[in-house]
Each structure stands twice: as structure tokens, then as C-alpha cells.
Computed example of a mutant assay.
Amino acid sequence: MVKRERKKAPARPKKAKETAEKDERTPAQEADLVTAVPVRERGLVPYDPLQIYLMEIKNYKLLTREEEIELAIRVREKKDKQAAYRLVTSNLRLVVKIAMDFHRYWTRSLLDLIQEGNVGLLQAVGKFDPYRGIKFSYYASFWIKAYMLKFIMENWKLVKIGTTQTQRKLFFNLAKERDRLIAQGFSPEPKLLAERLDVREKEVEEMSQRLGGGEVSLNAPVGDEGKEVYGSFIPDTGVAVDEQLSTQENRRILLNKLSEYRERLSGKELDIFDNRIMAEQPMTLQEFGDKYGISRERARQIQERIIRNIKSWLKEEIPNFEENFGSFIK
């Protein structure tokens, strides 16, 4: 008896097999697979914004001297936006070049420097005078550098360090001058640095501490297991609680005594006391004079006499009156 050989089914192509398995997956399984693969691994080409930007600005051709002057005149006299656009785009590579020089100061993001430099370039286009015979790129470089320097100083640390002209001078020259002295065989002491940079020795020491010191949050604990935070060591500039209570008590005593003295007054003196001395919106001396048919000067004299009498009476009634209540009655 001859056994009949069983034919094997043809092997399914690998691609077709993967397609079939994919079709058998549920929507939930598909979602799990998508979230399991990081976004970076799914990209076919690495995404580099800086390289893309550099490739794009290469498409803008440089201007000749004659084209630059012509466009600058159109911007200045006619406010031509298209001419301004060409001036800006043709100098974008200049911004990148300057940003690369400043990148040694600011190593976080070159694109941030380029962005700030582009703002400076826009300012240069609006301020440039083509009739002075100055090349636009030379003029624009100062605006570009100024905006980059301002950005670096404002973002170097949380606490600003270049708020004065002297601080800005030290910020950019201190490290270079220190390296120069070391190369010459000198010890970069603060006194010598101050003489070389024409600043005070104290300013050199302060800037060295700012550049070299780190930043600590006021809410950070003192020590590894400390319960106190650094902010608790900052002195309170407000009035202490005991002083506030003392002031309130003195004010209460004074008002009670003034109420007692009021009972001694009558007529014009009582009216001046209520509507002139103690009133939040006092009447004028002229109004009192017109009311009682006396001169303004006479009304002032009556008021001065009442105040002198009040002070004399309070000194007798309240111990240490001048010390505790001198600020209340002047």
C-alpha cells in the first residue's frame, strides 16, 4: 500500500502575513502600539530647526552696494515694505555670523540669539540713513549685537546682573582681562583688574561673585534635612506686631483724652476744634472768618491758641506725652 504524500500549503509571504496579523488587531491594540513607540523613533529624518533655518536663508541672495543704497532710499523716503523685506532677508546670514561669535557667552540656544539679532536687524532697517555713506551691514551689526547683548544679560540668571553701564562693561570684559593677565604671568587680583578696567575694586568683587555664584530658591531648605528655608532669614521690613498694638493703644488713649478736652470748649473754639482741627475735611480759615465776621488771620490765631492749650493739657494728663504721642500731634 503506497502512502500518498500530503502536499504542504505554500508559505505565506512575510509581508502578507504581517498585513494579515495587522488586520486581526483590535483598535485598542493599535492604540497601544502607537503610544508605545516614541515620537523621535517614528521620524524618518532627524528634525533640526537650526539646520532648516540655515538652509532657508541661503535662498536669499546678497545685495550689491548699489542695490543696498537703492533699497535703503526707498525705505527711508517711501516707507517701501518690499524694499525693507529685501534688506532684512539679504542680511539674515550676517545675524547668524554674529550669533556664532556670541554663542560662547550663551550656550543654551543659538536660535534664541538669532531671533534677538533679527529684531535688532529690523530696528537697523528703520533707523538706517543711506545718505551718510555707511555700509548697511556695518551699521546693522551694532543693532544686532546690542539686542543680543541685552538678551544675554537679561537671561544669564534669574537675578539681573547687567543693570548699569559699569556692570555691563565688567560682564563682557572681566573674564577676558583675567585670562590676559594670567597669560602675561600676573595674578588676576581684584585690585589689578579694577585698574586695568578702570572701575572700582568693589565692583570687580561683586561681579565676580555674581558670575561665579549659583542661584538658590528662597523656598529651598537650609541643609539636607533642614526644616528652615532660606526665605525665613530675610528680615521683615514691615512694622512689628507689638509696635502695631502699641500704636493702636496710644491712639485710643489720645482720642479719649481729646474727647474729654472737647467738653471744655464752646462757641468759636468748639467749632474750630470740630470742623478744623479734628475734621477729615476741614473748613478753610477764610470760611471760619466769614462765618463769625472775623479776619482769616484772627481765625488762625484762635486755632493756634487751641492747639497750644491742648498740648499743655495733654502733657499734664498723659505721662511721657512727648515720647509716646509726639508723632500724633504736631
Rank of each mutant, 00 (worst) to 15 (best):
Y139A: 07
Y139H: 08
Y139R: 01
A140S: 10
A140P: 05
S141Q: 02
F142E: 12
W143I: 00
I144K: 00
I144E: 02
I144A: 02
I144V: 15
K145E: 15
K145F: 07
A146K: 08
A146L: 08
A146Y: 05
M148F: 00
M148P: 00
M148R: 00
L149N: 14
L149K: 15
K150N: 10
K150R: 11
I152L: 00
I152F: 00
I152P: 00
N155D: 06
N155S: 11
W156Y: 15
W156S: 14
K157E: 09
L158K: 13
V159M: 14
V159A: 14
K160F: 10
K160H: 13
I161E: 03
I161Q: 05
G162E: 03
T164R: 02
Q165A: 08
Q165F: 04
Q167F: 01
Q167M: 05
R168G: 08
K169S: 13
F171G: 03
F172G: 05
N173K: 10
L174M: 03
A175P: 10
K176A: 12
E177C: 13
E177H: 07
R178T: 15
D179K: 12
R180A: 15
L181S: 02
L181A: 03
L181C: 04
I182S: 02
I182N: 01
I182F: 01
A183M: 06
Q184D: 05
Q184L: 01
Q184K: 04
G185I: 00
G185E: 01
P188R: 04
P188T: 09
P188M: 06
E189Q: 12
P190K: 05
K191M: 12
L193E: 06
A194L: 01
R196T: 14
R196H: 13
L197S: 12
D198R: 14
V199C: 12
R200E: 11
R200Q: 10
R200A: 10
E201Y: 07
E201M: 11
K202F: 08
K202Y: 08
V204G: 04
E205T: 13
E205F: 05
E206Y: 07
M207S: 04
S208L: 13
Q209W: 06
R210T: 05
R210I: 09
R210P: 00
R210S: 09
L211E: 03
G214N: 09
G214L: 04
E215Y: 06
V216Y: 03
V216Q: 06
V216E: 06
S217W: 14
S217V: 10
S217A: 14
N219C: 10
N219A: 14
N219F: 12
A220K: 11
A220G: 07
P221R: 10
P221E: 13
P221D: 13
G223W: 07
G223P: 03
D224M: 13
E225K: 11
G226D: 09
E228F: 07
